[in-house]
């Protein structure tokens, strides 16, 4: 590996570490959140360095973007007193740091031999790619080989949404929309739909797919909602419910149909894999987009009604 690659990796790594330490140690909660968003973006860069463009996209959209929005939204709701309260550096900061360091060292011993080993699944995926019905291996793993994981993950998202629904309404604090933001979002929102659709479409052959697309769509919707350009998305609308639940339902139905037709639970009949996966992805994207939108900006009342 050449020196400038080392320089790049070293700088990225150091930066990430420094940011992480700063996130935990900085006094103001607000700065901590902003630093955490920067941390997420930096991680996306690292994923790209490590040859994982799918993840870079997902991290940028989900990890940094949506988590950041969630954190800021939460920050907006906590009281002044709570915001001002600083983390005191009490007696156990020292021992905690020492302990974490020792644990890190132990874990380094564990990871030391790993780079020289390899995985049995890589050749297995390569073998079966032809039968998977899609051209991009990550999508193949997500929707074919380990479709059950993905289905459960959709359920996790649904469950998180359901869980938020249970909470009693908290005080809404919606600031007035900023005029410039309104203007920009009119431009950005259609763009996000466009890019989302493109990501979804490309997902079968190249990096991208339902989650990235869903996150982008959600980002667009959130922008519109924040600027007041989108009406409230209440749970009481049948279509909202259908959108949110559609992903899981279609996925489950196709899985059961596969079992019924003898291709195994969550298996696709020969020749049908491509179209079915696309179908699932479309529904999953819509479902993810709606759920994330409601999760991030849905006022509790909208979510609960």
């Amino acid at each position: 590996m050449s020196l400038h690659e080392w320089m790049l990796d070293g700088t990225l790594g150091l930066l990430v570490l420094i940011l992480a330490v700063a996130v935990l140690h900085v006094r103001s909660l607000y700065i901590s959140i902003v630093l955490f968003i920067a941390f997420g973006l930096l991680l996306a860069l690292i994923w790209a360095r490590l040859g994982a463009p799918d993840l870079a996209l997902a991290e940028a959209a989900i990890g940094a973007g949506l988590t950041g929005t969630l954190l800021l939204a939460a920050y907006g709701r906590v009281s002044e007193r709570r915001r001002k309260a600083e983390e005191p550096l009490d007696w156990h900061a020292g021992p905690a740091l020492l302990l974490s360091l020792i644990i890190a060292v132990i874990l380094m011993r564990a990871v030391w031999p790993l780079p020289d080993l390899d995985s049995a699944l890589v050749p297995a995926v390569a073998d079966q790619m032809a039968q998977s019905g899609v051209g991009h291996p990550v999508t193949a793993v997500l929707l074919s080989f380990r479709a059950w994981d993905t289905l459960l993950e959709l359920l996790v998202l649904l469950l998180a949404f359901m869980a938020v629904r249970q909470l009693l309404p908290s005080l809404p604090r919606q600031p007035e929309a900023w005029p410039l933001l309104q203007a920009w979002s009119r431009l950005l929102a259609p763009l996000s739909v466009l890019i989302g659709g493109y990501l979804l479409w490309r997902g079968s052959a190249d990096p991208g797919g339902a989650f990235q697309a869903g996150a982008l769509l959600a980002a667009g919707a959130i922008l519109l909602r924040l600027t007041g350009l989108l009406p409230a998305l209440g749970w009481h609308h049948f279509w909202i419910r259908a959108l949110i639940l559609g992903g899981c339902m279609v996925f489950l139905a196709i899985g059961v149909a596969g079992y019924w037709l003898g291709t195994g639970f969550l298996g696709y009949a020969d020749g049908w894999a491509g179209p079915l996966i696309l179908l699932i992805e479309v529904f999953a994207t819509l479902s993810i987009a709606t759920t994330l939108t409601l999760l991030v900006i849905g006022e509790t009342r909208e979510v609960r009604e």
């Binding site: 905690a96 302990l99 974490s100 020792i102 644990i103 132990i106």
Partner: peptide, 10 residues
């Protein structure tokens, strides 16, 4: 958890 990790891993 941290102390447990330390203890069982050392």
């Amino acid at each position: 958890m941290a102390l447990g990790l330390l203890w069982v891993l050392l």
